[in-house]
């Protein structure tokens, strides 16, 4: 069953065309990888999907879970089960991580018809999942992302994914800046979460992450379009030959 269907979307930023007709269908139970050179519009696509202001399509349609995605505000998209792990998570000085997470989780639980968690119940649940991501309790007491290392920020993104139980998770370069150990922790988290009732889009510049999170499909985004789609073997070719062959072939 389709969870996300992107139909021929176009987007320009400051009159510069970034996406020039991208289409993509993702079914529940699937893992898709989107690869592509720097500046090819991968993060832009993730912002369009998550509803960031200023990323309005000039044409195209997007269906998410049988709804018109573009009709939903950014927070509604999250409420409905779309999740973005940011390439560059922002810091929120003064906003306690625990309060932030609890606020977010209880809103999502309401939509899922689950009862809200009180402070104690929430702390227990957050700590359980945090420890699986090797996030120390002490980190949850700090302000969101403040004083977190690059790797800690990425693990904190995946913790949020686990807590929010999305139907579609988009991971934007979650592997960048991670050492091998951290990469394994993050991949384990994603692998444990993915199942037949959800789907994952992994955006990455490198093939490395795909050794741990094995995709069903790989798409190459370049020059504003999906140049090529294939199976995991496509990522191996990229690793060997780089993007040059594919991008030039156009």
């Amino acid at each position: 069953m389709s969870i996300l269907n992107i139909k021929d979307i176009h987007l320009s930023i400051e009159e510069k065309p970034i996406l020039k007709g991208v289409s993509l269908n993702v079914n529940l139970g699937e893992v898709h990888a989107i690869m592509g050179p720097n500046g090819s519009g991968k993060s832009t696509l993730s912002y369009i999907l998550s509803g960031k202001e200023g990323y309005d399509l000039s044409s195209g349609e997007i269906n998410f879970d049988n709804k018109d995605l573009l009709e939903l505000s950014a927070n509604e998209r999250s409420n409905q089960g779309l999740f973005l792990a940011f390439q560059y998570p922002v810091e929120l000085p003064g906003v306690s991580s625990m309060n932030f997470l609890r606020e977010a989780v209880n809103i999502r639980r309401k939509v899922l018809g689950k009862k809200e968690l009180n402070h104690l119940e929430f702390v227990k649940e957050a700590r359980r999942l945090a420890s699986s991501m090797f996030i120390k309790d002490e980190m949850l007491k700090r302000s969101v992302n403040v004083g977190f290392s690059g790797g800690e920020k990425k693990r904190f993104e995946i913790l949020q994914m686990m807590l929010l139980e999305p139907k579609l998770a988009i991971l934007d370069e979650t592997d960048s800046g991670l050492d091998v150990d951290a990469l394994k922790i993050v991949s384990n988290g994603v692998n444990n979460y993915k199942g037949k009732d959800n789907a994952v889009i992994v955006i990455t510049h490198y093939q490395r992450l795909l050794d741990y999170i094995v995709p069903d499909y790989v798409h190459i985004l370049a020059d504003g379009v999906i140049k090529k789609s294939g199976g995991p073997e496509l990522a191996k070719i990229i690793e060997k030959n780089g993007y040059a062959g594919i991008v030039d072939a156009a």
Binding site: S50, G51, K52, E53, S73, A74, N75, S78, N79, F83, L84, F86, P89, V90, L92, P93, G94, V95, N99, F100, E103, A104, I107, R108, S143, V144, Q160, L164
Partner: peptide, 26 residues
């Protein structure tokens, strides 16, 4: 910062409140 809240399902009004609270809490 506001978008980070929205992307986690927290509405704009609440996000503004939490950010102002954070601005003053220190």
């Amino acid at each position: 910062q506001l978008f980070y809240f929205l992307s986690r399902g927290i509405d704009k009004q609440k996000a503004r409140l939490m950010l102002i609270e954070a601005f003053l809490s220190e």
